[in-house]
């Protein structure tokens, strides 16, 4: 699982280097991500620019990670590709995460 994790002080920055978050890796992605966000207990920023494809299993993993973190701690998704953004929009899960187009 290719995840680059950095603690910036204010938040946990996770760069997702997996090109596909799909049924083949959704469970291990969920487990690894849960472990990272639960250790941090801070707002999370995820750099999604390298993810070309996500299916409903990948989305389910993302939602599970969202539920693992208290709702007052945001998960900010940065630089989603059109294919990934579509999955969030069609399932209305785009309202559950904070979505930014640019890496700040």
């Amino acid at each position: 699982m290719q995840l680059i994790v950095a603690d910036t002080g204010g938040h946990i920055a996770i760069t997702v280097k997996e090109p596909r978050i799909d049924a083949a890796i959704a469970t291990s992605f969920k487990d690894k991500m849960r472990e990272i966000v639960l250790q941090g207990r801070k707002p999370v920023q995820m750099d999604m620019r390298s993810v070309d494809f996500m299916d409903s299993s990948g989305l389910g993993a993302m939602v599970a990670v969202r539920k693992a973190l208290p709702s007052e701690l945001p998960i900010i998704l940065v630089g989603m590709t059109p294919n990934v953004e579509r999955v969030f929009r069609l399932t209305r899960m785009d309202t559950v995460f904070q979505i930014q187009s640019e890496v700040t």
Binding site: G60, V63, V87, L90, T91, R92, V96
Partner: peptide
């Protein structure tokens, strides 16, 4: 519309 206290983790597939 998602309820932030009770988010679904499945059921997305056929919707898509």
């Amino acid at each position: 519309a998602p309820d932030s206290d009770d988010l679904p983790e499945g059921g997305f597939g056929w919707c898509l």
